[in-house]
Design a binder for these strands. Structure first.
Lengths: 222, 222
DNA sequence: GATTGTGTGATACTCAGTACCGTACTACTG
DNA sequence: CAGTAGTACGGTACTGAGTATCACACAATC
């Protein structure tokens, strides 16, 4: 049996026991026993009891950073932010029912909730760093970067939560709308649109309410 | 000696020891010994080792809620949000050097950082609940409420951090500016201008690539 | 075939947190 | 004043997470 096999078996055992008896009523010994490994091995593999639940997202953070670093022009940056957030979203979706099981646990166990929030803080921090790097020079840049980073993660979480709770099965359209909403919040006065013919339509919506989506749609594809 | 006296003495002993040896190298027994109380009494008073550091902010949350509940008209609501956040800020300032000592600890000890973030989450949650209550009806209201709540707390934290790190001694002007920035973000296009004409600029993007976002933007608001 | 490295399990330890019990001190009541 | 109920405190013992250490099995290498 491969090392990866025992790892997966341990994680499965942990989820089973947590759902059966609850997190607090499950000891590491219980998990190790059901997984057929020693207690030492458990802590060697996961470091702590919480870590059985939470996946290593170092690799995900790296992919996000790569996406953010790839955005060079001013126009592509908002798109890059949205797509970096999309990476997180898709990562959850790929976990499927496991992500939902973890969500149920984090709702009821304070320790796990704290742990999850800390993880999300890492996403926010990553966004903040890059956005701040882009906009440095302006005085309020630090605050604006922080606000935008928080907004992106908040919007992401909002849509994600809908899916985790089972309110929707295909959250990506909602996700796109949410990203449009967010980027719209921060993307006024970026002018400089050149070359412009256009189509005129009638709509009951106000220009203002449509603008953010329009800007996002017209941003050059990467 | 009053019960409040021993409590304060215990907190002082804890801060001393944490600064002397670090959080992890200080046991509850050490704190209890220096404070001249029994270990049982410590847990009876604080519940956990973390709780010596973090003040009860139930009362603060209650005051914030009272302020938010007092805002009835649409115009005063943004002001109420800013002032509720101001309550938190002033609360930190009133702690003075204690708040800064706690900040130094939370920077270096992951457990304490997690605990602090969870506390801030409560502020965000409170804001979200009230803002959502105000704007309910629109579909995007939930998202907007969450975004605004996150923005307020983020801006608050941004300014607070500057003070905690000693970058400034009087952060309130910065705080006010930050609140203006935040409320400004969310206070455009509340008008119901209906049936606006839509202008589309010429673009290198294909119509097809733009269509989905356009449909989303023009979908009638429920 | 001896050696070195690596993953594993067992044991023992520290410390946070809980439960329980005896005791001292206080307040109320006759 | 004597007796009693309530309460805050300290002490002891226990569970369980996390760490450190050691011995052993099994592989690869020369």
């Amino acid at each position: 049996m491969g090392a990866n096999d025992t790892r997966m078996r341990t994680v499965a055992a942990a989820y089973e026991l947590f759902e059966e008896r609850g997190y607090d009523r499950t000891s590491v010994d219980d998990i190790a026993e059901r997984a057929g490994i020693g207690r030492s091995t458990f802590f060697r593999m996961f470091g702590s009891k919480d870590d059985v639940i939470f996946p290593e997202h170092e690799e995900l953070l790296a992919r996000m950073e790569a996406r953010l670093a790839g955005a060079v022009t001013t126009e592509t940056r908002h798109l890059a932010v949205a797509e970096a957030a999309r990476l997180v979203m898709l990562n959850y979706l790929s976990e499927g029912e496991v992500a939902r099981a973890r969500y149920r646990l984090t709702r009821s166990v304070p320790v796990l909730r704290a742990r999850e929030i800390v993880g999300q803080q890492q996403y926010t921090r990553l966004f903040r760093t890059w956005i701040h790097r882009w906009y440095e020079g302006s005085t309020e840049a630090a605050l604006r970067a922080e606000l935008m980073a928080a907004a992106v993660v908040t919007a992401h979480n909002h849509v994600l939560r809908g899916w985790l709770r089972g309110h929707t099965e295909d959250p990506m359209p909602d996700f796109d709308r949410a990203m449009v909403e967010v980027t719209g919040l921060f993307s006024r006065d970026s002018g400089d649109s050149e070359g412009a013919t256009l189509v005129v339509l009638r709509t009951p919506r106000s220009v203002e309410s449509v603008l953010p989506a329009l800007r996002a749609a017209l941003a050059p594809e990467p």
